[in-house]
Write a protein that binds this DNA or RNA. Structure first.
Lengths: 192, 192, 192, 192
DNA sequence: TATGAATGAGTCTTCATTCAT
DNA sequence: TATGAATGAAGACTCATTCAT
């Protein structure tokens, strides 16, 4: 999304750092995470980090990109399914499967968005783009279902997910996710 | 919830600090806010802050308490209304009225919850309590509407609010809140 | 030793503060003791302390004075005894009786002397004076025993006490004091 | 005793810091010494200190270690001498030679022990270990002299040193050390 | 005299970022 | 490329001392 792979050397440190950043930033939060934390998680010497990322913000951006890629992968997989209903329900299933992680650390995208919003840097745009991708995909599904209010429904669905992720996390109760997903499933069925 | 009001002298600095904390922490986020920021907002010399709050965490807690009190006030006002439907819709109206603020800084409770979750201190319990209050109130409304699944509905409603707040904030688009609130209104009507 | 009793009002706060200072400074050390600690121990509001003592140093000085007075009292009591040997041994007994306190916090005079020496203020002179008083008294006893080297013996005796206090304290072992006191007793007997 | 020498690179800053800490802490006392003082004495920028020592306490510990090493060196040198009497007297000579420094700042080990005792951290154990080393060595000498009460005599000797150091320091009179050392020499001779 | 409140200078500690090799 | 080391700008917190009443 930003700069593209400094070089093709197989060291893979850049990727390792991005992955480590995505993981650590999710579990610890941006403010609570130091560069050293990420470097350590990636097993890269601190000093070396700066060869790949000029600033901490760039690492955050790389983490966002990693999340974006994960999302694209997910969407790609979902798109294999035959009907939009199938795809949306599969999305719900994915959320439910991750409920334990969500209860512990919240939705990766959502928590990042929340944190980044309070900062002056332009990173909030990057995370917004990720969110927009998901939103657009959901909208597409509802449209294929013949709904004229596809956009509104998509927003409602993603909001429901973000919101229940927050509650699941706040109360450390993964079952909240399960229950809400079931409810959303019924809701989707009712829209056809 | 925690305090004990040092004294009843009219200086009101403690209250001023708590209010300033609530406001500044909401707009800047906890990590980005320095004690000096809060002190300045409250027009209190930095050193003096520590006479009222022993640590930054205590200030955060005071801010949470302030939010709790605001919430109690809101609930109190809503309870004046005749039917549960009226009350829930009035709640929605309140959210819509605040949409500009939400678009700029997110839901005060939600963003706090999100931030606090990543921290080791026990503050996440305090904010969870606030959330629980709102949840319980909503559940009560749905119950009065005769719904056996009141709890689930309450969770869905609050989740919807938290989620749309996040999106509203992420996309800086207050209209998202308006649209979703209208949708929720119809949803409430459909439950009767 | 310094200024003498602001007034004769019976409040006795000044004395209470001095006593509290002596006690708290002994157990916590000067640097680790805040004015608030002393005020609290004396059950005097912090702000009020300054009516009696203009600075923390003056409180320290008052504590030293308190120790000096205790010493004078002790010497007065010892002087009731018939022979210098009796008096010196009684002194030893006193040390042994205090061994538990010494093991915990060291000799009050010695630890104060040690701490004050590192400071720029003139308080080290005050504590030196206290030490000098004890030294002079011991010298007098040895002189009465007919020793020409009374001064040297006195220094040796007090040094032995200060040193064993330090070891007793460092190793938290009150028995060190007991053993050394017994040894000093034999030594005194051998000098006659 | 605790360290592990970050690396063997020749910068030697760690050692310089430890040495500076040992020296400055001895002359100024722990409480009166700021990290900046030590950094300045070692000619190291303040921020850089934390690359080597995570906290002020670790610097204090390093200083203690430095003293321990000095002591081990001293003991090693003494052990070259033929008889225990020679060794003990050489120890006394060392004390006398340092009398000026002692008069100014007290015994490094003793003053540290005194200060550390009043603190909650575990540093008092470290300094106690140093003291124990010296004590054990002295005991060994007396034992080699054939004394069954070697332990008691060792305690007496070290106590005498600590005590006379305190008096020497309190009265700023280096001659006290000289006189007492001479007396102890005679005492040692009398034990054979 | 009494006292809650106020003040600000000082200290430790953290960390992103840079640099020399 | 790689990396240990360096740097300095913050920020939280403490506390003696002062002040208004």
């Amino acid at each position: 999304m930003t700069d593209s792979k400094k070089s093709r050397r197989p060291s893979g440190k850049r990727e390792r750092l991005a992955a480590a950043a995505a993981q650590v930033l999710h579990t610890q939060g941006i403010a609570q995470t130091t560069l050293a934390d990420i470097a350590q998680a990636a097993e890269v010497p601190v000093g070396n980090v700066y060869y790949y990322f000029k600033t901490k913000n760039q690492l955050v951006e790389a983490a966002i990109d990693a999340h974006a890629q994960t999302l694209r992968g997910l969407i790609g997989a979902l798109d294999e399914l035959p009907t939009p209903q199938d795809r949306l329900k599969a999305l719900l299933n994915g959320w439910v499967e991750q409920r334990e992680l969500t209860a512990r650390y919240g939705c990766p995208t959502g928590t990042l968005a929340s944190e980044l919003d309070k900062r002056a840097d332009g990173l909030d745009q990057s995370i917004a783009a990720v969110m927009k991708t998901l939103l657009a995909w959901a909208e597409q599904q509802f449209r294929e279902m013949g709904r004229a209010d596809a956009r509104e429904l998509a927003v409602a669905l993603i909001a429901a997910y973000q919101g229940i992720s927050l509650l699941t996390n706040t109360f450390r109760d993964p079952e909240l996710m399960t229950t809400e997903a079931r409810r959303l499933e019924r809701w989707i069925d009712s829209l056809a």
